[in-house]
Design a protein around this nucleic acid. Structure first.
Lengths: 235, 235
DNA sequence: TTTTAAACATGATTTGCGTCAGAAAAATTT
DNA sequence: AAATTTTTCTGACGCAAATCATGTTTAAAA
């Protein structure tokens, strides 16, 4: 390995450095980072490939190097998307003590590169480094808080409010802009909002007709943020 | 303090020993346990008293010494009960890194005794004892897995299935028996199932009429467990 | 390029479930 | 014991949202 402790991806186009995931590996010594690398793989995925499957043995924690994934719960042929994961983010930590099985499935929404670390390495890091353990707890708390907000949105709000929540989430947390290309299909949007595809399409059209957003294909622009926030609050 | 390191409750009827919460304080030295006690209080609550309030500064992690509590999310006057907490169980860990505020409210459903530990003591234990940190992560994972199961139940199942889930949860996890006195009102049951009080009452009546359960007042008995599980699965 | 399959779109129909109204029973309080 | 409040209960009604049906557009594959 040269330079030392840098993971060369198979495509030779990218490298993963521990600094790319400061909350996770930033505090490791080079020796430990090297040890992590030995128990890891880095894979390239095409669009719509499955990274891990709900219920399967939990073998890895995943770090997204590039691209966008969906983490979702499967139930009777229906999918409920729990979160979208992008470059610099990780997932799978919430399954490491879950009866050895994955709580969620994950799949790529775009071509993606994912760095997978063996679960036992992570567990060991937690036991050895209090700092690593604390970071893990902070991450779990954050994920949990998001999930709770989603429970409230999904169970207490109706379609308009849920869709407003989703669009605001995209603008604020995913793309960091009021104008974005949302990469995902209406069906995924529906699976994220816990509604039927038809309803998702209908509501996006309504928001467009009411000039609250403009949407052409997958290009979204928030035109009236205040009204959108009001829908999120009262819809 | 005498005997040393045992918290004498105000009522002088009970004591809290670190062994009562083996996952949490079992591994502490007597010296550290003594330190925990110095930063804790133990309070008696009447029925229907609020232990902590969603959105308030998160100051404590709570350990239930006796009685039964509900942990719930408030939204526009509606409550969604996330979990019931009983003797030997704890809550509040999921709020310790949540912008300093409580993710949930909690209230007593029966008279209850609750042992509250200062949040900074918990954070410190996490940093000092890898074992304590690992136990915390296991607890958070468990709580998270429960929450995910509830998301699925609440968003993917309809009323019958949700009520079946709730009754099975009471029998399996809370009372450990197919026959139990469910202490809580129909309203709380509705808040746990994410439905209106009228619907909860109606469905319990229907289950009773169909001889799947028998219910008189608050006394519940599962008569046809297979059918109840089938409702949970397909309802 | 042609064929096939997804994705997007929209109207019509059905239904699950919340809301409303009103009453009986049970639990608290006076 | 009486009065008041809370909880339990039941029917009628209305609506939000899923489902169904059918067509169009876009993207992928042959």
């Amino acid at each position: 390995m040269n330079p030392p402790y840098i993971l060369q991806l198979k495509t030779w186009k990218m490298q993963v450095k521990k600094e790319d995931f400061p909350n996770w590996f930033g505090q490791l010594t080079d020796e430990h980072w090297s040890n992590v690398l030995k128990n890891s793989v880095c894979l390239d995925y095409n669009k719509n490939e499955i990274i891990c499957k709900q219920g399967a043995f939990a073998t890895n924690v995943y770090f997204v190097v590039s691209g966008m994934l969906k983490v979702y719960k499967e139930y009777k042929g229906e999918n409920l998307i729990m979160s979208f994961v992008r470059k610099g983010e990780m997932f799978g930590l919430s399954s490491i003590y879950n009866n050895e099985t994955n709580l969620f499935s994950a799949a790529s929404l775009t071509p993606a590169t994912v760095f997978s670390v063996n679960i036992n390495i992570i567990k060991n890091q937690i036991r050895v480094y209090p700092d690593f353990a604390e970071k893990s707890i902070i991450q779990l708390n954050k994920e949990y808080a998001n999930t709770i907000e989603r429970i409230v949105s999904l169970t207490q709000k109706q379609l308009n409010g849920r869709m407003a929540d989703a669009i605001l989430h995209f603008a604020r947390n995913i793309y960091g802009s009021d104008e974005f290309n949302m990469q995902i299909t209406r069906r995924d949007m529906a699976d994220f909002c816990g509604m039927s595809t038809e309803s998702a399409i209908r509501i996006l059209k309504e928001l467009h007709n009411d000039k609250i957003i403009s949407i052409e294909g997958k290009n979204v622009k928030i035109l009236n943020k205040q009204q959108l926030e009001s829908l999120s609050e009262f819809g």
